[in-house]
């Protein structure tokens, strides 16, 4: 990325042009070193032995089962948190009640907890020596070191994502459109589906994407509860770890490249959503200018 064009409107003196050049160069070097280089490394390492070896690493049964488990986990955790996120945002953004600030902080809690501790809490609850451990063993139910544990830990880790996107968005939109719909005779659910939902769809989509990205990529918490049983309780990130520790670098980086591409998709959707937002925002400010 070479800096070829200077900002047109800024009348810059030679000195501040130099300052700009230096600052932009440092920023690009920093970002290049910390963000771009790792990306390049992932794909270089993945393709080290050629495209055939790259493709082959996706077709091993272990990789396929890891992909399957990751998708199952995501498909359960994300909808759960989606329903929660919408409900919490509706209650918090559209109503005034006491203790709202505390509730928002509580929703943010999982962000503050180390992934490892997030995994640990489910071991303490459902592990062999955990609170429900004896009962679960008696009834032959496996949660820890099995899929339910992975789903639970992932749900915990991704708990705040959608709510956090929706709460400020719905707060900024206020309640007047909903009131207008109610005056016109629409019922509660209809008002939600015809008025509220269309207005938050981009924020909702972005929340779902962020939530999914984290659900797919979660490592620490899942690592603690999974038990690392090959072909059974390995998600993609755990599979990467196993391949890496077995010195199958091409395999590890191939799987990593898959997750990297998903990260790109996440960023792309984020950019699109932000663009949509700013367009909405512009229309919104046109509103107030014109009226």
């Amino acid at each position: 990325m070479k800096i070829t064009k200077y900002y047109k409107h800024a009348k810059t003196s030679g000195q501040s042009r130099l300052a700009k050049w230096i600052l932009v160069t440092i920023a690009i070097l920093f970002l290049g070193l910390f963000l771009l280089l790792p990306l390049i490394a992932v794909f270089t390492e993945a393709l080290r032995n050629g495209i055939r070896a790259y493709v082959a690493s996706f077709t091993t049964p272990d990789t396929i089962s890891a992909i399957r488990l990751t998708l199952i986990t995501t498909a359960i955790a994300v909808p759960l948190n989606l329903v929660f996120g919408v409900a919490a945002a509706w209650a918090i953004a559209k109503f005034d009640f006491r203790g709202k600030g505390i509730l928002i902080t509580l929703i943010d809690l999982p962000f503050a907890v180390s992934p490892v501790v997030s995994g640990l809490i489910f071991i303490l609850l459902f592990g062999l020596h955990g609170w429900f451990g004896p009962w679960l063993t008696e009834h032959n139910i496996k949660i820890v070191f099995a899929i339910p544990g992975i789903v639970l830990a992932t749900t915990f880790i991704t708990f705040p994502f959608i709510a956090r996107e929706l709460i400020p968005l719905m707060q900024s939109q206020g309640t007047e459109e909903e009131q207008a719909a109610l005056v016109l005779g629409a019922g509660g659910w209809r008002t939600f589906f015809r008025i509220t939902l269309p207005n938050i769809k981009w924020g909702l989509l972005y929340g779902v994407i962020l939530c999914s990205a984290r659900a797919i990529g979660e490592f620490g918490a899942v690592s603690v509860v999974s038990g690392h049983i090959r072909g059974q309780t390995n998600t993609l990130p755990l599979h990467i770890e196993i391949l890496y520790n077995e010195y199958d670098f091409v395999g590890a980086f191939s799987v990593a490249s898959l997750l990297t591409m998903f990260a790109f998709v996440t960023l792309l959707i984020k950019s699109i959503v932000e663009w949509k937002f700013s367009k909405d925002l512009q229309e919104y400010s046109n509103d107030s200018n014109r009226s």
């Binding site: 064009k5 932009v24 690009i28 970002l31 790792p38 990130p237 990297t260 790109f264």
Partner: peptide, 24 residues
């Protein structure tokens, strides 16, 4: 500042949020 690739760099800032930690 306006410079070539500003939008690109702006959007990859969030990469550490989107990229699984194991990959990083």
């Amino acid at each position: 500042y306006q410079f070539k690739g500003r939008k690109f760099f702006d959007s990859i800032i969030d990469l550490p949020f989107a990229l699984p930690t194991a990959v990083a």
